[in-house]
Amino acid sequence: MGKGRTARTRRASTTVALLAATVTAALAAGCTGTHNPVDDGRGQLRTPVPTPSKSAEKTADTGSVLAVKIDNVRAARPQTGLRAADVVYAEQVEGGLSRLMAVYATQFPKSIGPVRSARESDLELLRQYDDPTLAFSGAQHKLLPLIDKAPLRAVPPEDASDAYFRGTDKAAPHNLYLHPSKLMPSAPGADALTNGFRFGAAPSGGTKETSRTVRYPSASFTFNWSARSHRWLVSMDGTPTVTTDGKRVAPATVVVQYVKVRTSRFHDVLGNNTPYTETVGSGTAQVLRGGRAYDVDWKRDNAKDGTEFTTKDGSPVNFAKGQVWVVFAKAS
Rank of each mutant, 00 (worst) to 15 (best):
S282R: 12
V324N: 01
Y129P: 05
T222R: 02
L178A: 11
R265Q: 14
T22R: 06
D130E: 14
R166K: 14
H179E: 11
N195G: 06
N36K: 15
R83P: 08
G206V: 00
T207L: 04
V103L: 07
S121F: 01
T311V: 11
G81E: 06
F221C: 02
V256C: 01
A252V: 04
K247Y: 09
V269A: 13
P50E: 06
G138A: 07
T274D: 14
S117G: 06
I147H: 08
S315E: 08
L123Y: 08
D131C: 01
T284M: 02
R5Q: 15
V317H: 01
E209S: 14
R198M: 11
V256S: 02
E91V: 12
A163R: 01
M101Q: 05
G30F: 07
T194I: 06
F319Q: 10
A250V: 10
S264D: 03
T239K: 13
T47L: 01
A171Q: 11
S211D: 10
T279N: 10
R198K: 13
V269R: 14
R10H: 13
D191I: 01
L66D: 10
T194H: 07
V88Y: 05
P145V: 07
N302T: 13
T9F: 15
K208N: 13
A154F: 06
S161I: 01
A293R: 12
W232S: 04
L288D: 02
A102W: 08
C31P: 04
T47M: 00
A75N: 09
E278P: 01
K208C: 05
V234Q: 06
V261L: 04
G206N: 02
K321Y: 12
T34D: 14
Q257V: 13
Q286R: 15
D245L: 13
T6A: 15
A56F: 01
P217Y: 00
R300E: 05
G167V: 10
L178R: 02
A293K: 05
T34Q: 13
T24F: 09
N175K: 05
Q128G: 05
G81W: 08
N272E: 11
V261A: 00
E209C: 15
A102S: 12
A56R: 00
A12R: 09
F197M: 07
T274I: 10
F223L: 04
S226V: 00
A67W: 04
D162M: 09
G2K: 15
K58L: 10
L152A: 02
A303N: 04
T279S: 13
T15C: 08
L143F: 10
T241S: 12
W325S: 05
V324W: 00
F108Q: 08
P188Q: 04
Y129M: 00
G200C: 07
G281Y: 07
P151W: 11
R127P: 05
G246P: 03
Y129E: 04
Y276M: 14
L66Q: 07
G291S: 07
V38P: 03
G167E: 03
V242M: 00
P203K: 05
T213S: 02
F223Y: 15
T213G: 01
D86Q: 03
V38Q: 05
N302R: 13
N272P: 06
E158K: 11
G33R: 02
A21K: 06
E124W: 11
